[in-house]
Design a protein around this nucleic acid. Sequence first.
RNA 1: GGAAGAGUUCCCGAGCGGCCAAAGGGAGCAGACUGUAAAUCUGUUGUCGGUGACUACGGUGGUUCGAAUCCACCCUCUUCCA
Length: 373
Amino acid sequence: MFKYEILKVCGQSGARIGRFTTPHGEIETPVFMPVGTAGTVKGLSPEELKEAGSQIILSNTYHLHLRPGEEIVKGAGGLHKFINWDKPILTDSGGFQVFSLTKLRKITDEGVHFNSHIDGSRRFISPEKAIEIQQALGSDIMMAFDECTASGTDRRKSKEALDRTLRWLDRCDKKATGEKQILFPIVQGNMYADLRIESIEKTLPYAKCGLAIGGLSVGEEKPVMYEMLDALRPYYPNNMPRYLMGVGSADCIVEGIVRGIDMFDCVLPTRVGRNGMAMTFEGDITIRNAPYKDDYSPIEEGCDCYACKNYSRAYVRHLINAGEIMGGRLLSLHNIRFLHRLTEKIKDAIRADRLLDFRREMLANYRIKGVTT
RNA sequence: GGAAGAGUUCCCGAGCGGCCAAAGGGAGCAGACUGUAAAUCUGUUGUCGGUGACUACGGUGGUUCGAAUCCACCCUCUUCCA
């Protein structure tokens, strides 16, 4: 049911264009996947996402487990039906919440005890439980339950998390039988190249048709993240997509693809959009700011998204400023379309064997922000 | 005409002798945001080139070492009585 075919390899960079077949359709990589944590890409309808070019979206095990509960989703006929999205869905395992809800958790080898961020109730998620939930949800791609560490974590703790992630992976793998859903294992190892290599070597036996790189974009400087990707690159198998988790700024996506990555996801376009910022080929611009109050040009010149075709910066700024939902919607839509346009341009460059040239040209005009968080 | 109350920094509004360039909120301005506890969070908002000075709490004049705060008169507004 799952298959990854390489359609083109860039002669200049080695980046590839691929076709990833899933039960809910094909995905052409490189691909950016918008995040819809609670079963919706915040503010946008499935039709709008499709029009923007989204091929697959994410959802979250932890959030849907807490509310409404996977049995409700299953009762609706599965997540695709429940949220009216008939294309592929990837569910994150809740591993990232282990990391981001750091004050509310306790990690043991069996699993993680959480306090629900919603009502404070005591919860427990194990690797088995994470898979069961994802099976009830019926996503196409299930993520292994992993332990993500923050940038700055010492070597000993990073190694512990890596080992635990591997033990958990084995348990996830035993549970993840069935043809309709595939399990993506996740490489950890923090910012230690040798740990990263150890992690990928021990993880690869579990990678059937997809491999994820986790624990990056967690507060390190961007060059550090690129170093980790460089260290991993020789170890990637060719017959499956490589997914860099949680990355979504334009510069990081280009740098990732140049380093062999095929899939990305990020909350950035929607979050930053709701907060009044537009992603463009010149870098982020804060539409909320005063200089745009009488700027009647589109959000980004040359963009073909619904927001750019129909509205001005001045109008979007007014909406954001007035606290109108539509402002965040239009910017989210633009930002997602922007990232899809980016990957389209990147694919063009791969087809023309000139991705390194494209990167240089693109970054020459792009204002980069320093750290990943 | 009489009585009572009120006038505070862009707005609302606290302060009622020194710790006040003045709480708090709003609005404004700016920054942040990368597997979403986020339509959120943070900073800033009298002027001048910095620990300092200057201008400010309706107006004018007083009391006091010191006043947004007390006194006198004036102006404006609100409510009530004729």
